[in-house]
Design a protein around this nucleic acid. Structure first.
Lengths: 131, 131
DNA sequence: ATTATATACGATTATATTTGTCGTATATAG
DNA sequence: CTATATACGACAAATATAATCGTATATAAT
């Protein structure tokens, strides 16, 4: 449990690679072959990052991706939520569709754990974890 | 991603129920029916907690479980690891069997994230998240 | 203009993990 | 002796994640 997904893993690999090669455009294939990552998944992952301006995309032959200055300032929470949606350890007892809500006795602890994790990730940037 | 398992959820429900009923022995069936939890899974979960002395078990008819004083002092990390094994966001790039190790460029960030989470969970007890 | 190569993106399949069930053994109160 | 509780391993079902496939669009180079 509490695992990150391959998408997040691939995204981290990609942005670090882009940061180390800021002078050139890097294509999906470049990263895919360099790290042994399935091309299609990596492509979609970079598309998500591009739509949030974490990276910038350039179409056409000689196209590819570039790192942006936004990367360093991005929090882990934002990074995760761009790729995977809301950070939440449960999915979920306290929203619509929970048929246990009436007898639920763990609302407080679940919320406290969740708040702690979100607070942690909101106070860590991608720059913080890079060095 | 970063979800807790049902086992952890059920364990939380169970220990909170036991803490609220410290004067009596509570059986698996009691908790199972009260919260709509599958009996067999709950049983195994409580067996794990019992083998770590988080709860105490009593066999035979009129048997069941009781909360122990150890609960409040138990850290979230210990609680999670009793039920689910080592707390780690990846499984894993840096151990045996990783065929990407030579080209891995995310060792540092993964370790930093992992250390942060483990640090958080090691400094939160079950008592801390209860109120 | 045409071609080759890149990103963009929805639909589908494959795989892995999690969740739940079944069967059997052991302990013990009445 | 019997009924009811915990103990525990093996298996099956359900769900979530990962990967693939197909098609569209943009654009640099010829």
């Amino acid at each position: 449990m509490l695992k990150i997904t391959k998408r997040v893993e691939y995204a981290l690999i990609a942005i670090r690679h882009l940061q180390e090669n800021q002078d050139v455009l890097v294509s999906v294939s470049d990263i895919s072959t360099a790290y042994g990552i399935p091309k299609e998944i990596l492509a979609k992952t970079l598309q998500k990052l591009a739509s949030s301006n974490i990276v910038k995309s350039y179409k056409g032959p000689t196209g590819g991706y570039k790192a942006t200055k936004k990367i360093a300032k991005t929090t882990l929470n934002d990074f995760f939520e761009i790729l995977e949606g809301p950070t939440a350890i449960m999915d979920c007892y306290f929203q619509d569709g929970c048929d246990h809500l009436n007898s639920c006795n763990i609302r407080t602890p679940i919320n406290k754990i969740n708040d702690s994790i979100r607070n942690l990730f909101n106070n860590l940037t991608l720059a913080d974890i890079s060095q």
